[in-house]
């Protein structure tokens, strides 16, 4: 029998995880549904039953990222509790299978359930509202190029990989500690960004933040240098590589987990 992945063993593990956690997951879905109803309901009520696309877009992105972060931060919580960690680590399944179950639930299944739940609630609220003359009360199109809702699916893997790594790295208070470490890292990167760029460019730099255009002063002239289109793709590729590195690191951290 393969010691890294076996489909029978994996399906047994998936079923065990589902059986032991489905009540908690259903309750979490209930809480999320309640929050979406509350916020979208208020937004609709305040606009005479019209649910603005901008509101739908904002709620979609904020709740996806926030709920996803909280849920992902808890997927390895058992390993921070000695009582739960021993049966979890000694259960006869490979580290990869154990990792994959947590990854599937927090990444794939979460996003699918979230999209379904969001549209169900948005459709319900819209059905209770009415069309404002001249404006049709419609559901958000996730892939509308004029809107940026689809960017949530680009951001989610990044946020997920950071939180997943934090969930296995820290023993307790995973969400808070990961958030603190992440923002500290971003802050330090922001601080270092300016001296690094100054060392490469002679002109006076007016201001710069990471992954943003560069503002420089040349005598009495001010310039903003935008990166070429190709470099936007580079940023995307770098972020993609970071996501994969963090996912792989989380797996190795699980392999090295001690109790």
């Amino acid at each position: 029998m393969n010691q890294t992945f076996n489909i029978n063993r994996f399906s047994m593990l998936f079923k065990k995880h589902t059986l032991e956690n489905y009540k908690t997951y259903l309750m979490s879905v209930g809480v999320l549904a309640g929050l979406l109803v509350l916020f979208m309901g208020i937004a609709s009520y305040a606009n005479d039953g019209y649910l603005l696309l901008g509101f739908q877009e904002a709620f979609f992105v904020i709740f996806l990222l926030l709920a996803g972060c909280i849920f992902t931060s808890l997927v390895f919580a058992d390993l921070g509790d000695k009582k739960k960690a021993i049966p979890a680590l000694t259960l006869p399944a490979s580290h990869f299978e154990k990792y994959l179950v947590s990854w599937l639930y927090s990444f794939l299944i979460f996003q699918l359930l979230y999209v379904a739940l969001f549209y169900l609630i948005a459709a319900l609220i819209i059905s209770f509202g009415h069309d404002v003359p001249g404006r049709e009360n419609v559901l958000l199109d996730l892939f509308d190029k004029d809107r940026m809702a689809y960017m949530a699916f680009v951001l989610y893997p990044f946020i997920h990989s950071v939180i997943l790594f934090g969930a296995i790295y820290f023993e307790k208070l995973h969400f808070i500690k990961t958030g603190f470490a992440f923002f500290t890292g971003i802050f330090l990167l922001g601080l270092l960004n300016r001296p690094i760029i100054s060392s490469m460019i002679d002109e006076t730099i007016r201001g710069t933040t990471i992954f943003s255009p560069l503002d420089i002063t040349d005598g009495k002239n001010y310039w903003t240098i935008f990166p070429p289109e190709i470099q936007k793709q580079t940023i995307g590729i770098v972020l993609g590589i970071i996501v994969v590195i963090l996912w792989v690191s989380a797996y190795f951290r699980l392999k090295e987990k001690e109790v």
Partner: peptide, 22 residues
């Protein structure tokens, strides 16, 4: 290495036990 073949032939009963809601 905690390989599955090793784990399926070992059972560890810790001092403090955890039981799921089953």
């Amino acid at each position: 290495k905690r390989l599955p073949a090793f784990l399926q032939d070992l059972f560890f009963i810790p001092e403090e036990v955890y039981m799921p809601a089953l």
